[in-house]
Design a protein around this nucleic acid. Structure first.
Lengths: 243, 243
DNA sequence: CTCAGCGCTTGACCGAAATCAAGGTTTCGG
DNA sequence: CCGAAACCTTGATTTCGGTCAAGCGCTGAG
C-alpha cells in the first residue's frame, strides 16, 4: 500500500510564504517571519503547460520549487530511449535536490502545473540558518523514500493487473489529499496519459489499456473521456492491487 | 548506473563514537564530544548471524544502528509471500527510520553483520539539539532515495540479463568503498544468495542462475564456489547493464 | 465540414521469463 | 567418511506481457 501522507495537515505552521501560499509540506512553513520576507522578494509563481520540462538530466539546478497545483513527473531514461517514471510530485511537495549541483533525473509537468520557485542559493543559505527547514526536508525525503520503496515492490513483484490497480489506488489517495482517507469511493481525473502510466508501471501502452478495460468491464471502475475515473469501491480496487 | 557514494570519505569528521568507531556516514561524526560520551554509554556492538531479522514489518522500532561491516537487506513482502528487496545497507550506513514509531519494512542480515546500536530515544533527543546530525541523515536519506530511484529503472525497464549485470556492478561498487572507483576490474564475494538476488531484481532463482551462467560462459565474469566473483573488465559488464 | 494527428483500444502472434522437474554441488553434523 | 539439507544449475514446457498491426474517436486547424 502506498504510504498515505501523515503530516500534510500538521497544523503547527504559523506563517505562509507571501507568493506561494503553500502550507503543508512546502518549505515556507518552516521559516521565521524575517526569512519569509526575504524569500518572498526572490520567489515567483509560474504556470507551466503539460509536457514542459522543468529540470533536465545532467542539467545544473539553480532553483527549488514548491508544487502548488498539478502533477510533476520525475523520470529517468536509459540510453536507448527506454524510460521509467521514478516519482510523482503532487501539491504541496518540494521539488529539487539539495547538496547536488546537477540533477540525475528529469522533471516534467504531467498536467498543467503551478509552481512557486526560489533561487537555490537563498534556500541553501536559509537551510544553514534554520534547522526547522532542514527538518522539513528530511521528513519529506523520508516519505519519498518510503514511496519509492513501496513502488519497487509494485515494479518487481506485481502482475500487470495488480500494477494498474495499484496505480489507480495511489492516484486516488494523492490527487485530493483533503478527501477523507477512509472514504469508500473516489473520483478523479487521471493526471497521466496511457504512455506515462506505462512508463510508471514498467509496462507497455497496450497492456495498460487492456488492464484498464478489464477493470472497467469487471465493474471496478468507470471511465469517461479516457481521463475521468470513478471508483465506487476502493476496497474492491485494493483487493486487486496485490495487498 | 547506481550512485557511487560521494561523501564516504569526507574527511571533516573530528571525533568517533567510542563503541562503534564508525566514521563516514555514520551518525557519530556529527556529534560534539559531550554527546559522544553520552551516546557511548548507551550504545553497544553486536555481531549478527546471516538470516537473523533485525527489524520486522509493523514492529515497533526502539533503536537505531550503524552498520559496521557486512550487508543488511531491506525487504518488503506482499500478503501471499512474494518478496522484494528494496535496499541494501553497507557499512557505514545508518539503519532506522526517524519520525515513525513502526517500520514498514523488514531488515535482515544478509551476511554476517556487525552493528553499533543506540536507543532510539537518545538519538531522537540529540537530533533536536544537533542540526549537524539531522544534516547527515538528510544527506544519507537523499542518497538512498537516489539509489532507490536508480533501482526503479532497473526493475521497470531492464531485461533479465541487464538486471543481473546491473546487480553485479552495484555490488562491485559498494562492497569495498575504499577501492579505486576508476578501477577497471573487481573481485568480491556475493553478499546474497541466488534467491536474494532474485528478490532484489524481481526475477526467479532460475533466471538469475541462467544469466549468471551466460555471463560466465561469455567470459565477462568468473565464479568460484558460487560466491566469489571476478570481473576482469567492469566496462564490459557495464555495457551489458543497459547504461 | 473535413481531415489530419494524436491518443486509445483491440486482435493476432511471438518471445522472454516463469513454472515445473530433475539432478548436481557444497556444507555441515554426526 | 556418510548422509541430509540447502543451494545451485539445467532442461522442457507454459504463460504473461510485448510486439506488430489495424482501426476508432476525439480535437483542432483550415
Amino acid at each position: 500500500m502506498m504510504t498515505v501522507r501523515q503530516d500534510v495537515h500538521s497544523a503547527d505552521i504559523p506563517v505562509l510564504c507571501q507568493s506561494c501560499e503553500a502550507r503543508h509540506r512546502g518549505v515556507c512553513g518552516a521559516l521565521d517571519p524575517d526569512q519569509l520576507v526575504a524569500l518572498s522578494k526572490t520567489s515567483s509563481r509560474h504556470k507551466i503547460e503539460p509536457g514542459i520540462e522543468l529540470i533536465g538530466d545532467a542539467e545544473a539546478i539553480d532553483s527549488y520549487s514548491n508544487v502548488l497545483s498539478g502533477v510533476v513527473k520525475l523520470t529517468k531514461g536509459l540510453s536507448d530511449g527506454r524510460q521509467q517514471i521514478v516519482g510523482l510530485q503532487f501539491a504541496p511537495d518540494f521539488l529539487g535536490r539539495p547538496f547536488k549541483v546537477e540533477s540525475a533525473i528529469n522533471a516534467e509537468a504531467a498536467t498543467a502545473v503551478s509552481l512557486c520557485t526560489f533561487p537555490k542559493a537563498t534556500i541553501d543559505r536559509m537551510m544553514k540558518e534554520s534547522p526547522e527547514l532542514e527538518h522539513r526536508l528530511l521528513k519529506q525525503t523520508l516519505n519519498e523514500l518510503d514511496d519509492a520503496r513501496e513502488w519497487m515492490v509494485t515494479l518487481g513483484r506485481k502482475t500487470a493487473s495488480e500494477k494498474v490497480a495499484s496505480f489507480l489506488l495511489m492516484i486516488a489517495r494523492n490527487i485530493d489529499p483533503t478527501a477523507d482517507p477512509t472514504a469508500k469511493s473516489a473520483t478523479f481525473d487521471l493526471p497521466l496519459t496511457r504512455a506515462d502510466i506505462a512508463d510508471f508501471l514498467g509496462l507497455t501502452i497496450e497492456t495498460v489499456s487492456r488492464q484498464m478495460t478489464r477493470l472497467r468491464t469487471d465493474g471496478v471502475i468507470r471511465i469517461e473521456n479516457n481521463r475521468h475515473v470513478t471508483v465506487d469501491s476502493l476496497g474492491r480496487l485494493e483487493r486487486r492491487s496485490g495487498a
